[in-house]
Amino acid sequence: MSKENEKTIGRREFLSSAAVLTATIPLALTLTKSLGASPLKSDRMPGASASAIRNVPVDSGVGTLEEELAKAGFKGATKSRQVKLRVPTIAENGAIVPVQVDAGPASKVKKISIFIDKNPTPLAITINYKPDNGKAYFNARMRMKKTSNVRALVVMKNGSKLYNSKLVKVTIGGCG
């Protein structure tokens, strides 16, 4: 029967093919689980080398992200959890996004630079520290134009550079 007519098959062949199909269900489920893991934890960031940093074009002739990072000495910085960067996952209002940076004792830190990648001027603020500060701590409210990474670059007195970055989602907000 299956030899004569290729479009239709017998009951047994149909049942065995259906069994194969059913067996793929657990495979499909595990696939979606791994794809859907924490969509908000996209902490992924372009690598530290300048060539991997994407060139974000801006509208009015102020430095691009790549230029500003290079000027601030981002090249060769390593990502480190020692730089405690605290930002909200979702910003209620893009005009008021709290950014908190804590980089350990101030005697070891020279300066901290904060970048907001997709702003027209990515370099937001630079703070120069002295040992009298006690702790290299900074907390402020910033403006963000759209959803983007917020990076904190810490330049130590011994020349080493550490950074940390997190993604902040900027929403339109409810009524008004």
């Binding site: 098959i9 093919s17 199909l21």
Partner: peptide, 10 residues
């Protein structure tokens, strides 16, 4: 007679 379950259908 049943339709043939090809790879595409799976």
């Amino acid at each position: 007679k049943y339709p043939k379950l090809t790879l595409g259908m799976i």
